[in-house]
Simulated assay, not measured.
Amino acid sequence: MAHPKSEKTTAPGPAGAIELLVDTPATPPLGLALVAHPHPLFGGANTNKVTHTVARAHAEAGLVTLRPNFRGVGGSAGQHDHGVGETEDLLTLIDWALRTWELPPVLYLGGFSFGAYVATRVARILLGEAASAVEANPNLDPERWRAALPSLTLRHVTLVGLPHGLALGSGTVYTTPELPTTLPVLMIHGEEDTVAPLARALDWARPAARPIAVVPGADHFFHGKLHVVKTLVKNALAVYPPV
């Protein structure tokens, strides 16, 4: 099987250039995927191994897959914005990608750790809901983005190591927005995650009765378990293909 091709490029963003890796499938693309990396202030970047693993699974499923560097990471302009500016950046990238490539308007979102948190915010906006109940940001107006992306279908979301409540690694308290039960979501979490504890991921999943794929013995970064993560993602994408 021919492997996806990966290349570095830049795209225009609200705070300046956004550096990203693009994983292009070996066959004609069936849609678009965005995969977001962990916390920028703690070494997170688009080369993170978990992010790379999730992105490659999407590319192998036939999707043009973008792995941006968040603000202030690598060649991306701007400064860390606690998820607000990062949400706007990902929305901007979706619009840019659909204009850059001739792609079916089918979108998959994925994220690891802080990137998973941002992915939930982007999903809320694309579904026509506010990213946060307490946030007033005209650039994150759901009506604005639904008007800009009128025919886009959000097909599936992959959340790996999702933080909710107090994240012990950064001391950040995440108010992670809920997602509608009609949206297919794959949650993957390490049994021994001490950064974003499993108990708090269960707190997020409980209201919607969302299952979580718990990887036995895995830490936050899934050391020695990345093959399990990739298998779980590929299996989920086979259930929710682009066409």
Rank of each mutant, 00 (worst) to 15 (best):
K5S: 13
S6C: 12
T9K: 10
T9Q: 13
T10E: 08
G13S: 03
G13N: 00
G16N: 09
I18G: 03
E19I: 10
D23M: 08
D23Q: 07
P25M: 01
P28L: 00
P40T: 12
F42R: 15
A45K: 15
A45L: 12
V54A: 14
V54D: 06
A55Q: 08
E60W: 00
P68Y: 03
R71K: 11
A77W: 05
A77M: 11
V84G: 13
G85H: 07
G85F: 05
E88K: 12
L93T: 04
A97I: 03
P104L: 07
P105V: 09
V106N: 01
G110L: 02
G111T: 04
A116T: 00
R124C: 04
G128T: 09
E143D: 11
A147K: 15
L154M: 06
R155A: 03
H156D: 00
H156Y: 07
V157T: 03
L159S: 01
H164R: 03
G165R: 04
L166V: 08
L168P: 05
L168D: 11
G169C: 14
G169N: 09
V173E: 11
T175K: 15
T176L: 04
T176G: 04
L179Y: 02
P180Q: 06
T182V: 12
T182I: 10
M187I: 13
H189Y: 07
E191A: 12
D193V: 07
A196N: 07
A201N: 09
L202K: 15
D203P: 07
A205I: 13
A205P: 12
R210P: 15
D219N: 13
D219H: 02
F222A: 01
H223G: 08
A238I: 10
P241L: 06
V243T: 15
